[in-house]
């Protein structure tokens, strides 16, 4: 079956600015990267006459300097999974999350920009990028930069304006890398399922083993991926114990707003979100060098 009935033209911009121009000029135009989202569920009745394919717009790369890791928006999930850089960086947490992303065939095509732009609450990458405090670079009428925390408004909605496309994801390299631990975990019905709940944590400790900074993000428990700021604050300045972690996660219900779907009920999501949060914190803390 043909994938879009009313498609008339297919564009290959060579640069993101060209893509934006085409999106603005052509009526009923949509951006496409890997297309896994668009071809399966993305159209939802919208009329599309023009597709602007950004996979040849110079946005497929992974770069690192002292301060930042930069991932081009059309870098595929597989490229992230297999990039030697991500095998080590942040306890390999981005690579691990990428590896849990549906199937090889999808990972080979789906892109990080597409996944973030689709703004689904179950994204396996979003919690990791939130825990790593990533920034999202966007190109439109002007160039913008958003912290990923705050990028999502609700399910399938981001702060991006019409005609804007994601160009790059920028991850700051923690200054205290040796004392930072990261973790990713996911619960699904099967290994290849979309998450019932997923999450990631990044914790930095000081010499005394006290938490200097903590970021915890959870997916599939709200309209979109969320940071759990209250829990994070509850960890700061503390040497963690199982009890301390439990206490910090006690009021997680306030942070989340889970929904029932075919995968699990809201109630179950709420229960395991708490378990997962505690486990993520513990794992990240231990990886940072903390002892529990």
């Amino acid at each position: 079956m043909q994938y879009i009935r009313d498609l008339k033209k297919y564009y290959w911009p060579k640069a993101p600015q060209d893509a934006v121009r085409m999106l603005m000029q052509e009526p009923y135009a949509e951006v496409i990267a890997g297309g896994t989202e668009l071809l399966v569920s993305g159209l939802k009745g919208r009329e599309v006459n023009n597709l602007v394919d950004i996979t040849r717009a110079g946005l497929s790369y992974v770069k690192k300097d002292k301060k930042f890791i930069k991932i081009g928006a059309t870098t595929t999930i597989s490229e992230i999974q297999n990039a030697p850089l991500f095998k080590d960086f942040a306890n390999g947490v981005l690579s691990t999350a990428a590896q849990r992303f549906v199937s090889v065939q999808i990972r080979n095509v789906a892109t990080i920009g597409g996944n973030l732009g689709a703004a689904m609450p179950s994204s396996d990458l979003a919690p990791v990028l939130m825990a790593l405090d990533a920034k999202i670079h966007v190109c439109g009428k002007e160039i913008k930069e958003f912290a990923i925390n705050g990028f999502y408004l609700s399910k399938r909605k981001t702060v991006m304006a019409p005609y804007e496309i994601i160009t790059e994801i920028e991850i700051p390299v923690p200054a205290d890398m040796d004392r930072t631990g990261c973790a990713f975990q996911k619960i699904g019905r099967t290994e290849t399922d979309i998450a019932i709940v997923n999450g990631a944590a990044a914790i930095t400790i000081d010499d005394a083993g006290e938490v200097k900074s903590a970021r915890l993000a959870l997916g599939s428990v709200a309209q979109n991926t969320i940071r759990c700021l209250e829990i994070e604050n509850g960890l700061l300045g503390k040497k963690l114990t199982k009890k301390a972690i439990e206490a910090a996660c006690e009021n997680i219900a306030k942070a989340i707003d889970p929904k029932t779907d075919v995968r699990a009920s809201a109630k179950y999501r709420g229960t395991v979100a708490k378990v997962l949060a505690a486990r993520l914190i513990e794992e990240a803390y231990v990886k940072a060098g903390g002892k529990i």
Binding site: Y3, Y10, I32, G35, T36, L39, V40, L51, S78, S103, V104, Q105, I106, N108, V109
Partner: peptide, 22 residues
């Protein structure tokens, strides 16, 4: 819908679901 893999082909060295690939 790119789930079952019966349509897998190799494009430039990587396996891809051809049913959801323009």
């Amino acid at each position: 819908t790119g789930e079952c893999g019966a349509c897998t082909v190799i494009i430039n060295g990587t396996a891809v679901n051809s049913c959801i690939y323009p």
